[in-house]
Amino acid sequence: MPQIEELPTTGPSAVRPTPGWALVPDSNYIDPSKAPLNPTASIRGKRSTRFENVAVSGDVLSSRKEREIRQRLEHLNSENRYDRKEVAIAIPKKAGDDKPSKKQTTGVRKILLSDKAFKHHLEDEVAHLSKQSEQGGSSTSYAGPQIAPSYAIPQPPPPKKRKAGPVNTSHIKSAAPDTVPPTTTTNAVEPSEFDVNPLLATSIPPLPSQDELLRLITAPPLSYNAARAAPASHYASLRRHFCDVCGYWGDVKCLKCGGRVCSLVHKAEHDSHCSL
């Protein structure tokens, strides 16, 4: 199903076409930083009433709010307040630079004239990778988006406070790699008197084999998007809200615009210039 949407042609968020030639990505890749913050928000259309949504998550962001956040993030990543094109600082010519400069190669001239921004290069990369995965071939120089298998067993979230208890701290210190390089041959730890106790014994996993280490250090790099941090697993519960006026906890939500304030005093201040 092709997705049809209206793209803005004016304003700062307008999409500029890639200068020159570009591959157009046709992938289902969703930029996590731009993805809806709340996964349930994307299925809003399928759910008819607002209240159902609220019942699902209790805190569904409206698409307007999403757009606001996206614009804010874009703004926080920008250099100046203006678009790069609008700034346009001419590179000053050096004095005495009139002598004919040495002949540039075609490659260099192409690079200097290239008008692509990082966004365009990233699109090219995504398109290149999706083309590659379609063909099923994997080039050695270019990392596919595949992620290596996760070795570690996911750790359950640790209890709030780990009780230090009877664990001998000096013993933990001795486990610290006190010689560098630390992993020379083994992860051997000095035997401790507590090791006989199954509750207190330290378990240091064995070092991976030479072949495995070799595989780790010779793997090709990941793509730019694959290296991006994933949201924390308990992301939804982490979302905190702050007062728009003073920055304290935003426990009160404006019914009109969804903005947050900390108290009735700041609610009054917010209401005086509420945008809706």
Binding site: I147, A148, Y151, P177, P182, T183, N187, I204, P205
Partner: peptide, 11 residues
């Protein structure tokens, strides 16, 4: 770290 073998974690 989760992409690494457990044996490398201490180091």
């Amino acid at each position: 770290l989760e992409q690494l073998p457990k044996g490398l974690w201490p180091a």
